[in-house]
Amino acid sequence: MPTSNVRLYPLGDTAIVVQFGDTIKRNTHYDIQAFGALLAQNPFQGFIEYVPAFTTLTIYYNPFIVSQQGLIDPYHKVAGIVNELLQQVNQVNSVPSFRLVEIPVCYGGSYGPDLELVAELNQLSPEEVITIHTTGDYLVYMLGFAPGFPYLGGMSEKIATPRKSKPRAKVWAGSVGIAGKQTGIYSLATPGGWQIIGRTPLQLFNYHRNTPCLLQPGDHIKFIPISEKEFESKKEGRNGA
C-alpha cells in the first residue's frame, strides 16, 4: 500500500482520523479494509473501536488509558501505533478476497413506487431500469446512516435520479432506492427522500442474529429481480424492520 499519501489528524480528544485518499475509489477502499482488519487483530491498550468510511478510518480511544493516566501524549502514542500498522499493511500488500451477496428485489408496483418516475426521467422503460440496476457489480464501501445501511458504489449513471423534493414520512425497511448517482437499501423503516424502485424481502438488520447486519464493508452485491409471489415467500420476520 502506498502509505506516503496517508494523512493523520485528530477528531477531538478521543479519536484519530487516518485518511487514505480524497476521492471514492475502490483501491482506497481496499487499503482501508486491509488496515481495519490489521487493527482489529492488533488492538492497543485503550483502543475503543474504529469506523471505516469512503476515504477514512477513524479510531476511537480512551486518552486516559492510552496516556497511562496522563504520563504521555495519547494522540502521538496512537499516531505512532497507526504508522507502525501502516508499514505492516505495506508488506502484506494483499489482494482482498470478498463475499458476493445476492439481494433479491421485487421491482416496481407497491414495492417500488418510483420505478416509473426513474424510467421516465432517464428516458428508459421500467424494464430497462431493472436490467441496468441488476447488471451492476456493487461494492459496499461503508455502513452508516442507520444500522446496517450500506453505502454502495457501482451504479450506472444511466439511471441516476435526483432525490424526491419532499421526503416520504415512511420508507419501509428493505426498500431499494436511488439518490443521485447512488443506490442503497433502507435497513430500518425511516423517513427518506430516495426514489424507491423496489424492495428486498431480506432483513438488512436484525439485532437477534449473531451477525446483526446482513452486509459488511467490502462485500460485493448483486441485485436479483423477483416476483411479488417470490417476495412473499422469502419475506423475513418483521423484527428489527
Partner: peptide
C-alpha cells in the same frame, strides 16, 4: 453501545 459504529449502529 461500544464496538458497533462500523456497522452504522449508534
Amino acid at each position: 453501545r461500544i464496538g458497533y459504529q462500523k456497522e452504522g449502529i449508534l
